[in-house]
Structures are given as C-alpha cells and as structure tokens.
C-alpha cells in the first residue's frame, strides 16, 4: 500500500494508534462514573442491589423465613395483602413476601450459575477456536453452529425431559445450549484482534500460543464478554422460569419465581397477587439487568 518512501514517517503513528485503541477497550473508572450519571442505569443498579441484599440476607429480611422455604400455614390461606402479610398469602397460606425473597434466591442464583458456567465453557473454547484455524477450531465451530441453529430453550426443554425435572438438572439443561453463544462471540472478537499489529508482532517475536492468548487476546475480549454476561443474566432468569412454569425446573416445595407464577395461575382472577407478585419481581430484576447492561454496552461501544 503505502510504498511511497515519503509516507513512511507516519507509519510509526499507526502503531501508536493501535496501542491507544487497545488501551481504550479496557474498563476505565471515568467510564463507570459516567454510567452512574445516567438515571436509568442508576435506578436499575439500585433495584439490583436491593434484590441482591434481600436475597443474600433472606433469613433476616423475610418476615416468615420458614414459610419462605415452603412451610405451610393453612389457617391464613389466600389472604389479600395486609399489614401482617404485606403481599398476601398463597394457597397454602404462605407469606408471599417471604416466598418471593426465597424464590429470588433460586432464580437469581440459577441465573448466575447458568451464565457463569456458560461463559466458563464458552470463552476458552472461543479463544481456542478463534486462534487455531486447524481441525480443532473447525470442530468447535461446527458444534457451535449446530447448537445455534435450533432454538436454545427448546434444546433445554428436550434435555430437561431426558435427564429429569428439577432445579439442578434445569440449570444443566440450560447451560448446554447456552455456552455456544459465548464461543461465537469470543471467536469473532479473536478473529478481528488476531489481525492487529500487536498480535502479529508478538507472534513474530516467538511468544507461545498460550502466552499470546492470555496476555494479548484475553484482556481484549473481556469487555464484550462482561457486557454479554450482564445482558444474559435477565434472559437466564426468564429461561429458568420458563422451565419451572411447565414443571421441568424447580420442584415444590421449593419454588423459583416462574413456578410461583404457575402456582398462582389458576387463581389469577380472584387472588391475583399470588402470580403477580413473583411475576413483577422477575420483571423488575430482568429489566434492571437489561437496562444496566445496555448502558454499560453503550459506554464501552462509544468512541474515545
């Protein structure tokens, strides 16, 4: 391209520009401060922190911890919200507030587990498949395509039927079609970073594959992966709910938010709170994750 010797002066600046780009992709504190200046992002962060606190300290925060874990309370069945039962009670007389808090434990923890393990499996495979274009990379790509060519939730349902219903099996069933999304994301990122000068330079200097992967590739894909993790938490929580709602996930007396909505569905017209309370909890947390993730993504994507 720029073979004109007179143009060589500027080439060194291209390398510098690359360095700057590399640096800019890392998380910076002023970026996070900017994030909190957005009202919506700040509000969602508050919702998330509240949910997290409630869930972590459930035994102290829930008014009736044992009911939250499933103990029945038959003399107070189907009570409307009142001072003693803040969000009403369900068909077994259990306090909805306590149930929602304990259900949040299962839903949130499940969501985190799915996304965490999906990323844990998907990211290394993506790094490997992106960096090695040999047979192993091709095999990984094909497997990923196979998974992505069919709706993930349907695959999860099928696996869940096969290995049996339950909270733990539902999580496994959801991780299996979930990790390929991370592999594909990382693979794409790696393919573009691989062509940059600093990776080529490292290759020419004779650094090993693993060194380049961990030293140069991993730090540069961390931001998109983190954003995707954050954006995936909401869908993961919904996905567990979807499985639980049709009886493939959490089993009573334990209940996640999806199952609680299901339990209230027959009484929706009279005792609406049994479904609406956990449904609202789910909706609020998911939308908070989504808005927060979106804001984060916006900030990382914006130039400069």
């Amino acid at each position: 391209m720029k073979e004109n010797p007179m143009a060589m002066q500027t080439d060194s600046y291209d390398i510098m520009a690359q360095k700057v780009i590399q640096e800019h992709r890392k998380v910076k504190w002023f970026q996070l401060r900017r994030l909190l200046k957005r009202k919506a992002a700040f509000l969602s962060l508050i919702i998330l922190v509240l949910a997290l606190v409630a869930v972590l300290f459930a035994p102290w925060i829930a008014p009736y911890p044992e009911q939250g874990q499933g103990a029945v309370n038959l003399e107070h069945r189907l009570q409307a919200p009142s001072p003693s039962y803040f969000l009403g009670t369900d068909v077994y007389g259990r306090d909805m507030l306590s149930r929602v808090i304990w259900g949040g434990r299962i839903s949130l923890f499940g969501g985190v587990c799915i996304v965490f393990f999906a990323a844990l499996i998907g990211v290394p495979l993506g790094l490997w498949a992106g960096y090695n274009e040999g047979i192993s990379g091709a095999v990984i790509s094909r497997v990923v395509e196979l998974f992505l060519s069919f709706p993930s939730t349907l695959i999860a349902m099928a696996i869940s039927i096969l290995i049996g219903a339950g909270w733990f099996t539902a999580i496994i069933a959801l991780i299996i079609p979930w990790w390929p999304w991370y592999t594909r994301l990382v693979q794409g990122e790696v393919l573009s970073i691989k062509q940059t000068l600093y990776v080529e330079a490292a290759q020419m200097l004779g650094y090993g594959k693993l060194y380049i992967i961990f030293r140069h590739l991993l730090p540069n894909i961390m931001t998109p992966v983190l954003v995707m993790i954050l954006l995936d938490l909401g869908p993961a929580i919904i996905a567990i709910g979807l499985l639980s709602f049709i009886g493939l996930g959490t089993q009573p007396p334990m209940a996640d938010w999806g199952l609680m909505v299901w339990e209230g569905a027959p009484n929706i017209l009279s005792e609406w709170w049994i479904s609406i309370v956990p449904g609202c909890a789910m909706f609020m947390v998911v939308i908070a994750f989504n808005i927060f993730g979106d804001a984060l993504k916006d900030i990382f994507d914006s130039k400069g």
């Binding site: 010797p5 007179m6 060589m8 002066q9 510098m16």
Partner: peptide
C-alpha cells in the same frame, strides 16, 4: 523536521525523524 525525515535515494545516512509524539 518533516522534510529531513523524507529518506533520500542514494544517500546512506540514518533516517531522521521528529522526536516525540503529538
């Protein structure tokens, strides 16, 4: 500095550059 940094054919002298960055 810029003009000095333009390499000249047939002259075997080290390439000069403007030190520092913008």
């Amino acid at each position: 500095g810029l003009l000095k940094a333009v390499p000249k054919l047939g002259k075997n002298e080290p390439l000069s550059f403007v030190p520092g960055i913008i």
